[in-house]
Structure formats: structure tokens, C-alpha cells
């Protein structure tokens, strides 16, 4: 499968990655090779096969809506690249 520049740009938007021109060239080749390789799956007739996300049949696991963890804000914020007044700080998002 040929991957166009537009596809790479589009996937870059979905993946939130900014690739350099060199990386884009490589990504085009890598993705195209990989998609050619995985097209092997088309040899299999899966018309009547149900897609399997989990191998064992899990039911939804519920619990009572009770808070079990304590307030850990100060510790959590220690990992933040930037913080202000007990909140995460991000660049301005609107004027």
C-alpha cells in the first residue's frame, strides 16, 4: 500500500506527533512496508468469525461508588512540569 504525504500528515495529527521531513519519509516507508506485510491476514476468510477483544469472557466489573484513595494532590503535583495554585499549568488556550 502506498502511503501519501497527506496520509502521514493526517496520522501525525491523530497521533499528536510532529515529524521532521526526514522522519516523515521514513514513516512513509515503514508504514507502507508494515501494511503490505500485515495484508497477509487477507488470505484468511473471517466472514463468519466474531472479533475477539478478550480471550476470556469478562463481564463488566462494578464496585460501589465509594472513594477509597485519599487526597494526594500535593504529591501528584510534584510530577507536573508546571503548576500554579494547586493546579496544572498549561499554555493559554483562548484569549
Amino acid at each position: 500500500m502506498t502511503i501519501t504525504d497527506e496520509t502521514i500528515d493526517y496520522v501525525g495529527i491523530l497521533a499528536k506527533l510532529e515529524l521532521s521531513d526526514e522522519e516523515k519519509l521514513q514513516a512513509k516507508k515503514d508504514m507502507s512496508d508494515m501494511l503490505d506485510y500485515v495484508s497477509k491476514l487477507n488470505e484468511l476468510d473471517t466472514e463468519n468469525v466474531e472479533a475477539m477483544s478478550h480471550t476470556f469472557s469478562y463481564n463488566n466489573v462494578f464496585r460501589e461508588d465509594v472513594v477509597i484513595n485519599g487526597d494526594n494532590r500535593d504529591n501528584l503535583l510534584k510530577n507536573a512540569p508546571e503548576q500554579k495554585d494547586g493546579c496544572y499549568k498549561v499554555p493559554k488556550t483562548f484569549d
Binding site: I8, G12, A15, L17, E23, M31, L35
Partner: peptide, 17 residues
Amino acid sequence: SEGFGAEVKRRIMLGSF
């Protein structure tokens, strides 16, 4: 883009596609 290495980016791109 600066934080992830090449193999991780490769798989994120393929997965997003």
C-alpha cells in the same frame, strides 16, 4: 515528538492509522 524514541513513534503512527 521530542520525548518518544523512533520505535515508539513508529508504533503510535501505525496504531493511529
